[in-house]
Simulated assay, not measured.
Amino acid sequence: MQEIARGASEFIGEEYIASLVQRFYTTGERFIVKAGFDPTAPDLHLGHVVLLSKLATFQRYGGDVKFLIGDFTATIGDPSGKTQTRKQLTRDEVEQNAKTYKEQVFKVLDPAHTEVCFNSAWINALGIGGLVNLTAQFSVARMLERDDFTKRYKENLPISIIEFIYPLLQGYDSVALNCDIELGGNDQKFNLLVGRALQRSYGLDKEQSVLTVPLLEGLDGVQKMSKSLGNYIGVTENPNTMYAKIMSISDELMWRYYELLSQKSLEELQAMREGVRSGNLHPKSVKQNLAHEITARFHGAGAAEIAQIEFDQVFSRNQMPSNIPVVEFSTQDSGVWICKILQESGLCPSSSQARRDIQAGACKIDGQKVLDENLKLTQGEYVLQIGKRKFVKAIIL
């Protein structure tokens, strides 16, 4: 139970979880643990891995995981924490994103105790009559207990009826799967509790326990990890990039990543903390162990070793990376705008961010700092760099 509770934000029904684990050790009977993922983007990042790691913990102690891909609910969009109605995804977008999810989750989960489910299987079967019956199980007043809905209502911001439907459909997933435990981020608490309520309404002889996990801070150490914010570490990123990004986090944030992502035991983590406090361990070596562990999990030990050597070469000895991505641009009369190159090569998410990076002195060309945000490059080859870890070779034809 200490390992299950590790890094959790909140437990609801902890005694029931303990009884399920006890039953597993006594009789070998397994129990059902569910977590839902709406495939709103094609790739998972380490923020998602926090939840996957907790699912893997349950698998070790008797849990059979229902990895639920919300292929139906993703077409609505989860309103949790949102200040406005979300854009709905097309069916093609959902199916493509769901395919990549299935390819990535078994880097963490045990396939022998994982079933990948799609909630369209039972939601489509509900029909209009079933949907009307589902909406009858919850009141508008209960829906408005959600902080984000309350805030939007008071500020006269629109709330669509379909957003009220979303928590009900997520809760109905727990009915359809006969869940014992549901996991989610701490911003999902309301939706998870709806599942408990609906299990009662539909006559199940159980109320699922709920365990929430914190939202992992991104590379900036402030905002939650998000691809749109550019502060993420993707599980499909190449090993050199993954290793370098982990090494870039602060020493303080490192312990948070250890607690939520590492497979090291609580005793091992405590020993490392004490080693750093006593001066017997340097924080950099502890962080290297973390970067190696996570990189090896997704790319293998050999790739992690190479990434560690590459990092030491580039960042400790100020040498160029051994393998720089190459992009080509067709020249124009006056050359190619530096911000266009930075954006289209992937070094910056937008031209406005490229401007800010240049103004901050974070951009270099062939090792020389660039300060002119209006610079245009003519025919030739250039090595562009943003910060310490992002490189690309631009060939202007």
Rank of each mutant, 00 (worst) to 15 (best):
R30I: 08
T85Q: 10
L229F: 14
V286N: 02
K54V: 08
K245F: 05
R6C: 08
A125H: 12
L51N: 12
G81Y: 05
F311A: 11
A35Y: 05
H292T: 15
Q88H: 06
I309Y: 00
V222P: 03
D78A: 05
L68E: 03
P158E: 11
Y16G: 01
D173S: 04
F24T: 03
I396K: 11
L204H: 09
L211G: 01
H282K: 09
G203H: 12
Q359D: 15
Q96L: 12
F31C: 08
W337D: 12
R356H: 09
I76C: 02
D357P: 00
I386Q: 04
E252Q: 13
P79C: 06
V213R: 01
Y382V: 13
G302S: 12
A98H: 09
D251V: 11
E14Y: 04
Q368S: 12
Y153A: 12
G130C: 09
D173L: 06
E305A: 13
D205K: 14
A121C: 01
H48M: 08
I395P: 00
E15C: 02
Q313S: 15
I233V: 11
V194A: 11
S322I: 07
V21S: 04
P214W: 02
R196L: 06
Y61G: 01
A244I: 04
I358L: 10
R317G: 02
G302D: 15
W337E: 11
P283R: 05
D312P: 01
A136I: 00
A271N: 10
G7E: 03
Y61N: 04
R60W: 00
S322E: 15
G279F: 02
R273T: 06
A296F: 03
E155F: 04
A394S: 12
V370P: 01
A125F: 00
L375F: 04
S330D: 12
I4N: 08
T90G: 06
K376R: 14
N97D: 15
F67P: 02
